[in-house]
Simulated scan of single mutants.
Amino acid sequence: MSRQFNMDTARQNFWKEDFLREKTLRCEWHRKYGSMVKAKQKAKAAAHLPLKLPTLHPKAPLSPPRAPKAVPCRAPSPALKAPIQSEMYPVLPATRALLYEGISHDFQGRYHYLNTRKLDIPEMRYLFPITTNFTYGWQLGPPVKEELAFRKVCRTDSFFRKNGAFELLDPRDLAL
C-alpha cells in the first residue's frame, strides 16, 4: 500500500490550525478545571491512607473538692450525678455480666448478651429516637393480643380451598 502525498500548503495550514486549536482547548480546560481535578485526586488519595488517631495521655487524678462544713450533705440526685454523653442508657450490671460468661460459639457470652439486650423495648435502651425508623413504633406500648378464633374461622371459610390448589373445584369452595 502506497502512501498518498497530497500535502500541499493549504492542507498543512489546516492541520497546523487544527493542532493549535486542540492545544488551546486543552490549556483552557486545564486552567478552568485543573484545580478541581487535583483536589479530587488528593481527597481520593487521602481516603486510602490509614487513619491516624491522636495519642491520649493519661490524665492526672483530680483532687476532690472540699465540702463546706456549715452546709449539711445531701445525696446527689441521679440526674445531676454525671451528664450522659451517649445516646443509649447504661446497661444493667447483670446484663453486662453476661458478656463474660462463656463464648458466643456455645450461645453464651456476647450472643446471650445481645439476645437479652434485644428483648428490651427501644425506649428502655435509647434516650431518644436516633434514626427516622425509630419513630415508627416509638412508645407504642405493649402489643395488643387479638382474638385468633375469629380470624381463623374467617380465613378457612372464605379464602383457602379445602381440597388443595390443583384439585377440581368443590361446590362448597365457591362463594355464591
Rank of each mutant, 00 (worst) to 15 (best):
L51K: 12
K52W: 05
K52N: 11
L53W: 03
P54A: 08
T55G: 09
T55W: 08
T55R: 09
H57P: 02
H57I: 13
H57W: 00
P58F: 04
A60N: 13
A60C: 03
A60G: 01
L62M: 08
L62Y: 02
L62V: 10
S63I: 12
P64Y: 02
P64R: 09
P65R: 06
P65T: 08
R66S: 12
R66L: 13
K69V: 07
K69T: 07
A70N: 12
V71I: 15
V71D: 08
V71A: 13
P72R: 15
P72M: 07
P72H: 11
P72F: 07
P72G: 05
R74Q: 15
R74M: 14
A75K: 15
A75C: 06
A75R: 15
P76M: 11
P76N: 05
P76V: 06
P76F: 07
P76A: 04
S77N: 10
P78H: 08
P78T: 04
P78Q: 05
A79K: 12
A79S: 13
A79F: 00
L80S: 13
L80H: 00
A82S: 11
A82L: 02
A82P: 03
A82V: 03
I84P: 00
Q85Y: 12
Q85S: 13
Q85L: 14
M88W: 15
M88K: 11
P90I: 07
V91C: 10
L92R: 05
L92S: 14
A94V: 02
A94Q: 09
A94I: 00
R96Q: 10
R96M: 10
R96N: 05
A97W: 00
L98V: 01
L99S: 01
L99I: 04
L99C: 04
Y100W: 08
Y100H: 09
E101G: 03
G102Q: 03
I103Y: 14
I103K: 13
I103T: 14
H105F: 13
D106A: 12
D106I: 02
D106S: 03
F107P: 00
F107M: 11
F107L: 12
Q108V: 00
Q108L: 10
R110D: 12
R110L: 15
Y111E: 08
Y111T: 02
Y111M: 04
H112K: 14
H112G: 02
H112E: 06
H112M: 00
